[in-house]
Amino acid sequence: METWTFGFEGKRGPERLILRRRSGPFDPGAARSISLATEAALIRATGARGAPVPPVRHICDQADGLGEAYVMGRVDGETLGKRIVSDPRFDAVRGDLAHQCGRVLAQVHATPPPEGVVLKTIDGVSELDRYEEVYLSTGASRPILELAFQYLRNHLPEAAEPVLLHGDFRNGNLMFDPQAGLVAVLDWELSHIGDPAEDLGWICTKSWRFGRPDRPVGGFGDYADLLAGYAAAGGRPIELSRVRFWQMLGSLRWGVICLNMYMSWANGTDRSVERPMIGRRASETEADLIALLEEGL
């Protein structure tokens, strides 16, 4: 995926824009991610429901000669988790961020998928199946991950009415402003249909807390504020244990992804030094998973 920033002088005067463009081929059947046209359609649809998203200016077609791509307005703000969690510039707004995240997720979840958009449906079982398959394919022998798979399968929440999910709602994909707070939800490529608690649990997954493990929501807020914001914006009540199920599945998923990053180095797909180092991050998820297994959901 390519992201280009550029200036544009048009009828509206000078504008700062972003081009998102796929550099390689896209196989909608095999890919976990959605097409860029779908991504743009979801940004427009959730924006129309009040969610803070970048304005989509143009969805490219064949005549543009850019392949699969779209253009959006550039939004200013901070995406680096460490700064949002600890930079004094965010001190004034930090206390409100978890509530804001809850409100925005309720807006996303209330958005009917736009007509013609086909999204995958994922639930707890299919997610566990998927990542267990990846885990087994790595050939790694990790008792804590095994125990987490077993535990989560034995603690599956009852089926929830499936809704539109962002699918990757966490620090890094959220843009924050020191005054306004959450100003843009970015990176919609993992959007799908599923359990609303999945999005709430993912931002509580401990790997995105950047040195503030005491603040479960992204290192900046508490569960209660996230859930209160969600309810305040009309979201259906969600039990904390359900959020923690998905939080735990989030740690497990990230642990398996870390192992798979190492595999991509080991099998020669990507020989960057970054890959095996991310592989060593699997142990952070093991420490987090053991703590959750000890506490229970």
Binding site: P143, I144, E286
Partner: peptide, 11 residues
């Protein structure tokens, strides 16, 4: 498992 995880994370 917890003791093992703590030791590995320290590395």
């Amino acid at each position: 498992l917890s003791e093992m995880a703590v030791a590995q994370l320290a590395i």
